[in-house]
């Protein structure tokens, strides 16, 4: 075949490949457009509107000025950071410890893995309801145990602003650590046995092995888990909605619960209505906040990589 003919043939095949690629990609692109891009643009459309689901009124920059002076929203942002901090501080170490313990070659570990993972598959609204009974002041299971152990007065877990964050954090850790634990176990399974054997020959004890081998070699998984945990913690609201409805006195009101209340009109009274436009603006701001936190985390993680 001549050089020209060969070029023509290559071009023809290229075009054919391109058409196939376009056709193969089109379902995914279509779904991306419909399920992700369009809703995002739809949300932006209402940022400058009062929209109650039935009628929309253009209000210019009013939603922005409202947001700036909306103390309930900004306090909910603060509560979200507080909640995320508590959750991460407890859930990651707990998941890691359990993963290390359940990764040992001991009989029955798979049963414990299943038990610890089970809360992850329970609907968060159901777990919220279960914990309502556990945390009840007067006839709650937790207070019953604490009183039997000699505690004087029952703790108002859900009705005291001093204790509600503890209750909410316990529920979040209970509901999520099994999932992260499995990620860690999966990561540990990838680490070669030879490395551990070499460490053993060198005389490393369990703690040294963990800090010098397991943890560094888990770092890629740890980074992913931390990222998931951070974004997850900032977006949590379902279980809190069932457990405390953001109370008492807005003490457990997190930003996505506040946004949900705005958009879906939870707790509507006679003269308030769903505020989809304002809620859309708050959603954009919340997304920016979560995005900034994620970027900050990634930068820190990169620096840690350099140090390690």
């Amino acid at each position: 075949m001549s050089n020209k003919g060969m070029k023509k043939q290559v071009k023809k095949e290229d075009r054919r490949d391109r058409i196939s690629a376009i056709l193969m990609l089109s379902p995914v692109v279509f779904l991306l457009l419909i399920c992700s891009i369009y809703p995002f643009l739809w949300m932006f459309r209402y940022v400058c509107y009062d929209y109650n689901g039935f009628s929309a009124t253009f209000t210019g920059a009013r939603n922005f000025t409202r947001m700036i002076s909306d103390t309930t929203f900004w306090s909910s942002v603060g509560h979200t950071f507080e909640y995320a901090f508590y959750k991460l501080v407890f859930i990651i170490p707990l998941a890691l410890i359990c993963a290390v313990l359940l990764n040992q070659k001991i009989k029955g570990t798979s049963v414990f893995r299943a038990i610890y993972f089970m809360p992850t598959v329970i609907s968060s609204s159901i777990s919220g309801m279960i914990f309502t009974f556990i945390f009840a002041t007067q006839n709650g299971i937790l207070n019953g145990i604490l009183m039997a152990l000699g505690m004087g007065a029952p703790v108002q877990w859900l009705t005291s602003p001093d204790h509600v964050m503890t209750a909410v954090t316990v529920l979040a850790v209970w509901g999520g650590f099994g999932n992260y634990m499995l990620y860690f176990i999966t990561g540990m399974n990838v680490i070669s046995e030879d490395v551990y054997e070499a460490a053993k020959i060198d005389g490393a004890n369990g703690v040294q092995t963990f800090f010098k081998i397991t943890l560094p070699m888990l770092s890629p998984i740890l980074k992913v888990v931390l990222m998931l945990a951070i974004t997850g913690a900032f977006k949590d609201y379902e279980a809190i909605m069932v457990l405390t409805q953001g109370g008492p006195g807005n003490r457990s009101m997190v930003m996505f619960l506040y946004i949900y209340n705005m958009i879906f009109g939870s707790g509507l009274t006679n003269m308030t209505q769903p505020q989809i436009g304002y809620g859309a603006l708050l959603s954009v701001v919340a997304a920016i906040i979560v995005g900034l936190v994620t970027i900050a985390y990634q930068r820190i993680a990169r620096r840690l990589d350099d140090v390690m």
Binding site: N52, R66, T72, P248, G249, T269, N270, M271
Partner: peptide, 22 residues
């Protein structure tokens, strides 16, 4: 009364917070 676009908590929530002493 007119249905309005209110920021923050409605009066029922705020008043109960006042009753609770928050």
């Amino acid at each position: 009364p007119p249905a309005i676009n209110l920021s923050g908590n409605d009066y029922r929530t705020v008043f109960w917070n006042a009753v609770m002493g928050y």
